[in-house]
Design a protein around this nucleic acid. Structure first.
Lengths: 237, 237
DNA sequence: TTCCAACTCCCCAGAAATAGCGAGGGGCGG
DNA sequence: CCGCCCCTCGCTATTTCTGGGGAGTTGGAA
């Protein structure tokens, strides 16, 4: 690990507020000598929180256009575990290409490298480095700094979780085993009758579980409950 | 980072099969000079996969007694983002204390340090170091090697995901913008009528989107479609 | 012991979703 | 130009889900 990173990480670990994160991320940007560095938390209800060096104009634009929904970086990171080079993402759709042009016009680099991070209750965030560079140079940079970036993403997320407890979905209540089973089977397409048969219980009993789970999850209906259970990591489909 | 770890991590990254993971974890155990080192993947349905240096007897015992359900390490890691020292967990309940005695009798150290790791689709695993030591010595060890352990946990999980046969190869179909909107609103608990009103279209039209999305996703019903859309990252809820 | 949470079962009526037929216009790429 | 996908709207009948009741057992925690 580069000595500079070491000390900046120390600062990060001693950060006591959101404003410190902004300081740290700028220090990191300068240290790595890249155009931008951004931490981007995407909450399970579409809510988002970011901190980094993108221009205010670009952030506003991103929110205004609701780019979150089509951003291939978000989509790509969401599906992967390992860090992703933006080149490896799918930029083919029309809307996405428009987004790309818009981003570059707003000073986002043509190259990027994003590290997905996941926390409890389905929390999800990304730590991104963006720069203007040739492919070769960028590949070398990413390869060299990969481990540092993973650690930085990790500690950044740790701090973000620490500072923003309110941002987390309401203390996820745990589901009982039967409720988990019920939600899981519903999530893989079984009807109530099928689930009841599979679990060898009456459909009435099953309904109690579903309603109980729905209540615990604060969900409006079964689909909502299943969606929440999945995005909070209570069930795996 | 200690030089030894560096080379072992290289080996880890070049691992081509599950058997290599076992080699690597033993090398890591020897390098850190601790009693045990374990990677433990836990699915929410109770399915688990592990690899490490615990005795076969203990692993068998753990499975036989279904200790997964009461293991405070699993529970504690599941709720946290940062690594946890076993001391900070709740060992108060009677069943848990019995588990603790059993574990120590089977050669698990009295001290432990576990790093939670999370992947896409709610994947969850832990990387654990366990040892027999005094509190002070252990705290020092944990503090010193924390970052290395986080990185090791990260790369170990990456490899485990890579070797996981259940990885879905089928490429996910893309949904049209309207379909994405429909799925998104359904996932946050709107009824069909509400979604239709929100999108300012007739409920009949909405139904076409839902059915189209369901078809594309190979889903049996709306709940299934929404579940798939979420777990494939097509919508962010 | 007492209490609570989890698990199990039952009825009924109204609301919502699904399955099956349709129809037509607009835009984009081969 | 034609085909394909996306967007929009319609009807009817059937199945499924939801919301309102109530009731008993069991095992673990306070």
């Amino acid at each position: 690990m580069t000595p500079g990173v070491e000390t900046i990480l120390e600062d990060l670990e001693h950060a006591t507020g959101v404003e410190d994160l902004q300081q740290v991320i700028q220090a990191l940007r300068d240290h790595f000598g890249v155009d931008h560095m951004v931490y981007h938390w995407v909450n399970s209800d579409g809510d988002q929180y970011g901190c980094g060096t993108y221009s205010d104009a670009w952030v506003a634009r991103y929110l205004e256009k609701d780019y979150l929904k089509i951003d291939p970086v978000v989509y790509g990171c969401y599906q992967r575990f390992h860090p992703v080079d933006w080149k490896r993402l799918d930029w083919s759709s029309r809307a996405v290409r428009q987004f790309q042009v818009d981003a570059i016009e707003h000073g986002v680099g043509n190259q990027g490298y994003s590290v997905p991070v996941r926390g409890p209750n389905g929390q999800f965030a990304m730590f991104t480095v963006s720069h203007n560079a040739e492919d070769d140079a960028w590949a070398a940079f990413a390869e060299t700094n990969r481990r540092d970036l993973i650690l930085i993403a990790y500690f950044f997320n740790q701090k973000a979780l620490e500072f923003e407890p309110g941002r987390r979905p309401e203390q996820t209540p745990s589901l009982s085993p039967r409720e988990v089973e019920a939600m899981t089977f519903l999530a893989i397409g079984y009807s109530r009758a099928q689930v009841a048969q599979t679990l060898s219980i009456s459909e009435h009993t099953l309904r109690v579980y579903i309603e109980s789970a729905r209540f615990k999850l604060g969900a409006q209906n079964t689909t909502h409950a299943v969606a929440r259970a999945i995005s909070r990591g209570l069930i795996v489909v």
